[in-house]
Design a protein around this nucleic acid. Structure first.
Lengths: 142, 142
DNA sequence: TTTACACCCTCAAGCAACTAGAGGTTCAAC
DNA sequence: GTTGAACCTCTAGTTGCTTGAGGGTGTAAA
């Protein structure tokens, strides 16, 4: 039986995050000691490891809930999980494309900065006038 | 004189976002009509365009505030703006590296999915066991 | 002039996915 | 029995907005 702190250590999660997952229904309500402290078994350890791993791969908590449901029903067809993974891959590739455009633009800004006064600063100048951009970029909040 | 709606249209911003920027002090309090509606001039248009452009390049609102301060003081040395831009570039490059690792892993997952039942699904299997990953990835919330 | 209607206003709450802190209790070792 | 780390709940904060309720304004046509 694991305390919440040990579970946290084993999965690289923060204690508060585990409690948060419980609160939103992603993790089950575990057993408790007489004093009211949470105690976890191997099933919960596996589930949390799954969740953390999927998070590391960029899946949203909502997508993870779907994946966990699929995982709980081994008789269901596989293509749903595949669809979720493909959707995720597509998102990652879109983000990559946008970030690459941003890198190009930022590199150009930084490269051209002469190190004088802000009056002649390329960084500020580029920000002032979008038309100077060589690449299209419309990324917000990625 | 522009209404908030026209300013929004010209800059590709939502009306509520402009009011939000005003609330947090990123945009100045504009003049008002007798009836209390906001009216904007060219200075505000330029400032908002600057903000939006910097957001598209991934700068945080906090960084943008710094950049705007620098922009308001053309006599100050330029290297501060350069530092902010370099910091941003570094962040973008870190994100790119992690996303590339994720893409590799996701591609592998999707590629190996046989399309049978979830019991044999590679996608779920990989998520269950991190040790199957070929690449290190520790991206969360990027 | 009145009426229509798009646009504007404020305030409050909600979103993702946590994180941090206050103030108090329990567990396990010594 | 006492210490002290680890646990508990609850609330609020983070970033960068978005959504909604409930109402007021501005302008143009009838």
């Amino acid at each position: 039986m694991l305390t919440i702190g040990n579970l946290a250590r084993k999965t690289g999660t923060k204690v508060q995050t585990i409690r948060y997952y419980e609160q939103i229904g992603l993790m089950p309500e575990p057993g408790r000691t007489d004093g009211g402290q949470r105690r976890y078994g191997n099933a919960e350890l596996d589930r949390l490891a799954f969740i953390r791993h999927a998070r590391q791969l960029g899946f949203s908590l909502e997508a993870i809930l779907e994946l966990l449901d699929l995982s709980d029903h081994p008789d269901r067809p596989c293509h749903e999980a595949d669809t979720i993974a493909r959707r995720q891959l597509k998102q990652v590739e879109q983000r990559l494309a946008r970030l690459e455009a941003l890198r190009t633009e930022l590199k150009r800004m930084v490269h051209e900065c002469s190190g004088g006064q802000t009056a002649d600063c390329r960084v500020l100048e580029v920000l002032r006038d979008h038309s100077e951009c060589l690449t299209e970029h419309d990324e917000i909040g990625a």
